[in-house]
Design a protein around this nucleic acid. Structure first.
Length: 861
RNA sequence: GCACGAGUGGCGAAACUGGUAGACGCAGCGGACUUAAAAUCCGCAGACCCUUCGGUGGGUCAUAUGGGUUCGAGUCCCAUCUCGUGCACCA
């Protein structure tokens, strides 16, 4: 840790680099002069090109920030500052995803209103974030739990409802009888509530659903035009899970009953030797023969009770029971047995499959287990009795399909099925409709009224918001209705203008709702009459750069895209996609110290002797040192407040980015933070004489050409920083600034023009230090909005370059050659080099490789 | 099991479309300044071997492992191992 000379009498003290003095000073200056305030006037805006840089806004938890949060925020801030200096109107806002479960739990526990808890947390988050000196336009701050925000969330819900995309359905939810409430999936493990161990059951409840499946195709197709990491796009594609195939109807032998299966391989219908229904399938009870009833009932009951864990463990072995019934294979006309098995999922497809053991791994295992026939219908594999052949091939044993390749066989069979009325083409998605209601207090109320006659009325737009009512407690009611049911009749009861009476919806929306459109509210955050002004929306959208954690790869990004497309269809936004470029930062890990018995210890209790190992100070016991995700329970959370107290915000910002590539997972090393501080101190000393506090005597009023070599280094630095920053390679951008500083240390004089230009370049990364030096060096106004310097292309190239001279690909010597030397000239120089003599003497050069400005290679015989 | 990503000095990492591997920083070592230390400044630094009075000169091996393509591979291809992340019988 840094040793500070705190003696007030020391002259040095007053003139050394003191982040704790200059950082609040400049933050104050920015706060009052508002250089980062983005114009709201459209005419004003249109004078400049736009750039919208967005951070995924945080959920303000009670724990406060850890150093992982500001990693992405620092990256976007550097880009925002650079773009601003380059003359763009930059939109760079911050806000709070403020509804959510933790605040509600705390409210139930302590009897405090969740709004109070949330405000406390937001205030703390804002304070911590402000200490890093980010250039947010704080006048656009949004809070999803504020009534003037969720008013518009409700308004968008009405749009969804009007388009028929919101509907109510009976769906299974996690019901905790002991708590009288519905639980989130994350609160349930092994069929028990994680906190108390009370059992949780699946129960059907009437819930609001959003028809995201109606947008499945567009959500899939429009991924192609986005500048997103390929991995994230792939995860979304898998999540949507589009597969094309056919539905086939099977008649149950000797009855009027039939069932429909979904298959992606209609070409293998001739090989379907049995069918399998999910245990939950409605037909199971009807077709089971009396002889099999006991066994089937037992299996169904067991499957119902099987916990997730048990099913995972048993995933390898196939279980199932014969129903006693047979179905007719429509292709062969022959009866095949109908089984039930829990490897068939009720929730996917039709809950029934035709089993083709020869060409499906799972069906093959099942057939082997129960001795069912395996018939090859696609040629190309090995022995299908031993192993399923799942690839494409040529149809055999398939009547009219014989000899066709898989693709044609699929088409022909589908056409045949359609012609005979036995089936049809079908596209199946894994994507399900979105369960959109929660039985919670701390969320957006639905603008919905349930009328006495059972119909649904919406609250008119003019009467929004439907505000959260006051309730005596934030728990469900005694009879298990959501907390909003505790609100009095004054809130619950509604009489429409036409005299009809009804009751308000008591469910609330999920946390995702607010985050689905916050990027639009930032555009026009103060608008009291519209969610946003359409002209302003046209100017700013789409988001040019969106940075956040990979954990939101699927849900948040898919839900937001869905809403955006609906808004697009309503003519309310001008782009079909909200986020043009997406970048995921990697997680920051930290060392943790753990005794063999799993107990974690804080760093302050540890004696870390490096290679020797780490030991517990109190007992001398050896502890394991490991690198893990930061978490409270591992005692390895690094708080940015502490880092700022010890090193300053500029050092923290720099280290966040210098650690390594932004997208990579990497460990926090306190030791390396010091290196960043040292760099900033060097920059300080370059400009300020620590003895006197006056500008360093090295600084001269001369022009940049008085130190030509340094000027070249400056322009090289300029070029590299601009290029690397815009490519989001911040770590190398910083290293180039370090290299320039090292050069500047060596020269006799430092022309002020050079120093000022360098400070302008440093400004996006270490803005407080840059402002202070800028003002001390007589810069005009704030460096944060000073124009970005242009590098001189003629200065970044040397007149001579170093050529590597290789023989058979191995480096033998180096030579200097003029930048535009010809191949023949360079070859002659290389051959003339005395060091080359032993390598070339008596050899014939079979080939000569010349790579301009880089190397030559003699291929000798 | 499947999908995706990643393996480079003691450590975090650089290396543009195949072209001098290890920039920059941390830790380390030597020197200067100092009564001394810290800080600072200057310098050294992949491993091994030969050579030299020497801080000289030179060579070999090195980017997880084994092959391949190429004048030339950290980078491209094949196989294997390890780690991380996501998904979990999706018909």
């Amino acid at each position: 840790m840094r040793q500070c000379d705190s003696s007030p009498t020391s002259a040095r003290h007053m003139s050394r680099y003191e982040p704790s003095v200059i950082e609040p000073k400049w933050q104050n200056e920015w706060e009052t002069k508002k250089p980062f305030k983005t114009p709201t006037d459209l005419a004003e805006l249109k004078k400049k090109p736009k750039y919208y840089v967005l951070d995924m806004f945080p959920y303000p938890s009670g724990a406060g920030l850890h150093v992982g949060h500001p990693e992405g925020y620092t990256a976007t801030d550097v880009v925002a500052r650079l773009k601003r200096q380059q003359g763009f109107n930059v939109l760079h806002p911050m806000g709070w995803d403020a509804f959510g479960l933790p605040a509600e739990r705390a409210a139930v526990r302590d009897g405090i209103h969740p709004a109070v808890i949330t405000k406390r947390n937001v205030d703390n988050f804002r304070r911590q974030i402000k200490r890093l000196g980010f250039s947010y336009d704080w006048d656009r701050e949004v809070d999803t739990s504020a009534a003037d925000y969720y008013r518009w969330t409700q308004w968008i819900f009405l749009k969804l409802y009007e388009k028929g995309l919101a509907y109510m359905a009976e769906v299974p939810v996690n019901w905790g009888p002991a708590l009288g409430t519905v639980l989130a999936n994350e609160e349930v493990k092994d069929g028990k509530y994680v906190e108390t161990g009370d059992p949780v059951e699946r129960r059907l409840m009437k819930q609001w659903m959003l028809k995201i499946t109606a947008y499945g195709d567009r959500l899939l197709e429009d991924l192609d035009g986005l500048d997103w990491p390929e991995g994230i796009k792939e995860m979304q594609r898998n999540w949507i899970g589009k597969s094309e195939g056919a539905e086939v109807t099977f008649q149950v032998q000797g009855t009027n009953e039939s069932f429909v299966v979904f298959t992606t391989r209609p070409d293998t219908l001739f090989g379907a030797t049995y069918c399998t229904l999910a245990p939950e399938h409605a037909l199971v009870a009807k077709i089971t023969t009396p002889a099999q009833k006991a066994a089937v009932d037992a299996y169904v009951a067991e499957a119902k009770n099987k916990s997730e864990l048990v099913r995972k463990e048993e995933a390898k072995k196939k279980t199932g029971v014969f129903t006693g019934a047979h179905a007719i294979n429509p292709a062969t006309g022959k009866p095949v047995p109908v089984w039930i098995a829990d490897y068939v999922l009720a929730s996917y497809g039709t809950g029934a499959i035709m089993a083709v053991p020869a060409h499906d791994v799972r069906d093959h295992e099942f057939a082997k287990t129960f001795g069912l026939p395996i018939i090859e219908v696609v040629q190309g594999g090995k022995d299908v009795q031993a192993e399923a052949f799942v690839e494409e091939g040529v149809a055999v044993n398939s009547g009219q399909l014989d000899g066709l390749k898989t693709l044609e066989a699929k088409k022909k069979m589908t056409a045949w099925l359609e012609e005979k009325g036995l089936g049809k083409k079908r596209v199946q998605y894994q994507l399900r409709d979105w369960l959109f209601s929660r039985q919670r207090y701390w969320g957006e109320p639905f603008p919905i009224i349930h009328l006495e006659d059972g119909s649904i009325a919406t609250v008119p737009e003019s009467q929004l918001p439907v505000e959260l009512p006051h309730v005596d407690e934030y728990k469900p009611t005694a009879d298990g209705r959501p907390p909003l049911a505790r609100a009095g009749d004054a809130w619950l009861g509604v009489t429409l203008p036409d005299g009809r009476k009804g009751v308000r919806e008591v469910n609330t929306m999920p946390q995702w709702a607010g985050s689905c459109w916050y990027y639009l509210r930032y555009l026009d955050a103060k608008n009291g009459t519209q969610a946003w002004n359409p002209e302003i929306e046209k100017y700013w959208m789409p988001v040019d750069l969106y940075v956040g954690g990979v954990e939101h790869a699927v849900l948040h990004l898919l839900y937001a895209r869905f809403w955006h497309k609906v808004l697009f269809d309503c003519g309310l936004v001008s782009t079909k996609e909200p986020f043009q470029k997406l970048f995921n930062q990697g997680m920051i890990l930290a060392h943790s110290y753990q005794l063999p018995m799993q107990k974690y210890h804080e760093l302050k209790d540890i004696d870390d002797r490096g290679e020797e190992g780490a030991f517990l100070k109190s007992t001398g016991e050896r502890v394991f040192k490991q690198i893990e995700k930061m978490s409270k329970s591992r005692f390895n959370v690094v708080n940015p407040d502490d880092v700022i107290n010890d090193y300053g915000a500029d050092t923290l910002r720099l280290y966040e980015l210098f650690m390594g590539p932004l997208e990579q997972v990497k460990p926090w090393e306190m030791k390396n933070v010091e290196g960043c501080l040292r760099f900033l101190e060097r920059v300080w000393r370059l400009c300020v004489d620590e003895e006197s506090g006056q500008p360093n005597q090295k600084l001269v009023e001369a022009g940049p050409e008085s130190e030509p070599e340094l000027n070249k280094a400056l322009h090289r630095c300029l070029q590299a920083v601009e290029r690397d920053t815009l490519a989001m390679r911040f770590n190398t951008a910083i290293s180039h600034m370090m290299t320039f500083t090292n050069e500047a240390m060596k020269t006799k004089t430092l022309p002020k023009a050079i120093a000022r230009t360098f400070i302008t370049v440093l400004a996006p990364y270490a803005p407080h230090l840059a402002e202070e030096l800028w003002s001390r060096l007589g810069g005009e106004g704030l460096v944060s909005i000073a124009p970005w310097p242009k590098f001189d292309a003629s200065l970044v190239v040397d007149d001579t370059v170093t050529y590597a001279v290789q023989v058979l690909g191995k480096l033998r010597t180096e030579i200097q050659a003029p930048i535009n030397a010809t191949e023949a000239e360079v070859r002659a120089m290389a051959e003339a080099d005395p060091k080359m003599k032993p390598w070339l003497e008596g050899k014939t050069v079979k080939k000569f490789v010349f790579v301009p400005k880089r190397l030559v290679n003699f291929v000798v015989g």
